[in-house]
Write a protein that binds this DNA or RNA. Structure first.
Length: 286
DNA sequence: ACGAGGTCCTGCGAGC
DNA sequence: TGCTCGCAGGACCTCG
C-alpha cells in the first residue's frame, strides 16, 4: 500500500522519464475516481499540457503542469503509476483508471486494483488550500522533534492513530507507524499525551529512520505495489513488526501479537519490548 | 470534540 | 472441486 516511501520511489523513478513531456489524448476509464472536477474539464486541461515537475506530497504524486494546474494522484491502497512502451499487459487493462499518451510514444498509466485511490486536478489556489490541510513532511529538514512532540504529544488519541493522521504528520500509514512504534519501544495504544519527552524523541527518530530506510530500499511490496520501474521494493525484507504476528521478536524472542483494537487496523507489537497495549490486559500465558 | 463504526472496492486464501 | 466469507485498509463519512 503506497505510503510515503512508496510514492517517493515511484516519483523518483518516473520523473526523469516524464518531466518536460507534453500529454496527449488522456483517457479516463473510471470517472468516479475523479474528485472535484468533471471528466470534461479534466480532459480539456490535461490534453496538450506539459509536465513541468513531478514531486511527492504526503502519499500523493503531484504533477506540476505548464498551465499551473497540478494533477494530484493519491494511490490509496493499491494504486500504481507506470510508463508503458508499446502494448501494456492485456490482462491488467481492466484495472486502468487513467491513461495519458506521451510525446515520446510511451503511455503514462494509473492502475488501481481496489479503486480506492483518487485523482484531482487543482489550480494554484485549490492546491494551496489542499496542501495546507495536510501536516508537515516528516523528512523535511525543518521538521524537528519539538514540532513532532507538539503534534503527537498533545492528543488523547492512541499514538498509532495520531501518527497515521495525515493532518498531524504527512505520509505515515499502517506499515511505518507499526514499525516506528516497535523501533521506539512504545505501546501503540498509549495516548499521545501520556508519552514522556524521551519517548517522543525516540519516536521522532524512529519515524524518520524507518521512512528513510524504506525509501533507500524502494518501498515495501506485499502484493500490488511496484516501483516506477515495474520492480518490487525490498523493504518488506527489513520489516521487524508489520506482518510478523506470531513470529518471535527480533530483540527478545517473545512471540509478536496482532490486535485490531486500535482504529480497527492490524497492529503487530511485542508485549515485552513495547509493554502493551495496556488496554488489552495481559499477554497470553502471563 | 471525540470515538466507534460504516462505506467504498477487489483479490486472495482459509475453511467447509 | 468449488463455493462463501472474512480480511486487507486510506480516506472520508455519520452517529451518539
Amino acid at each position: 500500500m503506497p505510503e510515503l516511501p512508496e510514492v517517493e520511489t515511484i516519483v523518483r523513478d518516473l520523473a526523469p522519464r516524464l518531466v518536460g513531456q507534453a500529454l496527449k489524448h488522456p483517457k479516463v476509464f473510471r470517472p468516479e475516481r475523479l474528485k472535484g472536477t468533471s471528466r470534461q474539464r479534466f480532459l480539456r486541461i490535461l490534453d496538450g499540457n506539459r509536465i513541468q515537475a513531478l514531486t511527492r506530497r504526503a502519499k500523493h504524486a503531484v504533477f506540476l503542469l505548464e498551465s499551473g494546474h497540478r494533477l494530484v494522484i493519491q494511490p490509496g491502497m493499491t494504486g500504481s503509476l507506470l510508463v508503458a512502451d508499446g502494448q501494456a499487459e492485456g490482462s491488467r487493462w481492466k484495472q486502468v483508471v487513467l491513461a495519458v499518451g506521451l510525446e515520446d510514444g510511451g503511455q503514462l498509466l494509473y492502475r488501481d486494483v481496489r479503486r480506492l485511490g483518487t485523482i484531482r486536478l487543482l489550480d494554484q489556489r485549490q492546491w494551496n488550500s489542499y496542501t495546507e490541510r495536510i501536516g508537515p513532511e516528516p523528512l523535511s529538514e525543518e521538521f524537528g522533534p519539538e514540532e513532532f512532540a507538539r503534534r503527537i504529544g498533545s492528543t488523547k488519541q492512541p499514538v498509532k492513530k495520531a501518527l497515521m493522521d495525515q493532518k498531524r504528520i504527512a505520509g505515515v500509514g499502517n506499515i511505518y507507524a507499526t514499525e516506528a512504534l516497535f523501533l521506539a519501544g512504545i505501546d501503540p495504544s498509549r495516548p499521545g499525551n501520556r508519552l514522556d519527552r524521551a519517548a517522543l524523541e525516540r519516536l521522532y527518530h524512529a519515524v524518520r529512520d524507518v521512512l528513510a530506510r524504506a525509501i533507500a530500499q524502494g518501498g515495501t511490496t506485499f502484493r500490488d505495489y511496484r516501483r516506477g520501474t515495474g520492480e518490487p521494493g525490498s523493504f518488506q525484507l527489513s520489516l521487524l513488526a508489520y506482518g510478523r504476528g506470531g513470529q518471535p521478536c527480533v530483540r527478545c524472542g517473545t512471540l509478536l501479537a496482532t490486535t485490531h483494537s486500535i482504529d480497527g487496523r492490524a497492529t503487530t507489537f511485542c508485549w515485552r519490548c513495547q509493554g502493551g497495549p495496556a488496554a488489552l490486559g495481559s499477554p497470553p500465558g502471563a
